[in-house]
Write a protein that binds this DNA or RNA. Structure first.
Lengths: 125, 125
DNA sequence: ATTTGACCTGGAGCGCGCTCCAGGTGGTTC
DNA sequence: GAACCACCTGGAGCGCGCTCCAGGTCAAAT
């Protein structure tokens, strides 16, 4: 176990492009990764797992800065002032976004229903 | 009732800037709005309501193009091929995003719990 | 020996969604 | 009539998050 992965395998495993992986590494969100004798990156399965976590958070809407802070917090020699506080804040923001989504879905449903009934929206403009 | 609003009142009522409102109008997402004798925009309460709907969708993650399509569909002399299809598609995408959010929240909770227990994340890097 | 292929670096470029700005037009206020 | 205010237009600029590219290295395949 604890096998290693090449860049190609990692892009396949994570769905991110090589450019994006390098960009995230530059931004200290992932890595820094080990290198082989040719200077090629070598990814561990822990690296892969962490990339999945980061991707999950990114998909949820965290920006690069937030991802970096998140990474620092969880892996870093963190000089973070209030780690749990940050996490809870982020969690709250995600919850908030979920509410927004729910409202949008409700509006969408209403519009679908109305459209389905009338065939078009007549209410002027 | 059916009163009208100035640009200033509209920015206050919607939280959007004047620039953004003009941009959306240019993009045919809202409006086109009536003008007074000075060429100033005049917003109706229907306009305001529609801006709220658009804002809701935007906040949920729809892009400019999608907002335009959405607007065309609901207000337009729509030459849309499959209106309800589009709406359902969008709805499904929103639902999908909600799932993503849920997963991220779960991961966040896990990290918070772990952090709270150990004070830091030891598991290597 | 050459070609191929996977990867490297540094830096420029891009699409999106605004945001800012220069310069202008009416009406109101002093 | 000077100043002020709210608004107008057209166009340039910006921050984010990649994405693309030129030019290079090394190792394996032909």
């Amino acid at each position: 176990m604890t096998r290693t992965f090449t860049m190609g395998e990692t892009t396949a495993a994570t769905g991110l492009t090589a450019d994006t992986l390098r960009y995230y590494e530059d931004e200290s969100i992932i890595g820094p990764f080990a290198r082989d004798h040719r200077n090629h990156r070598v990814f561990s399965d822990k690296d892969i797992a962490w990339i999945h976590v980061v991707t999950c958070m990114k998909d949820a809407g965290l920006g690069i800065d937030e991802l970096r802070t998140f990474a620092d917090l969880l892996h870093g020699t963190h000089a973070a002032p209030d780690p749990v506080g940050f996490l809870r804040e982020r969690r709250a923001a995600l919850e908030e976004r979920r509410q927004v989504l729910a409202r949008a879905i409700a509006v969408m449903d209403e519009k679908i229903a109305h459209f389905a009934r009338t065939g078009t929206e007549e209410d002027e403009r």
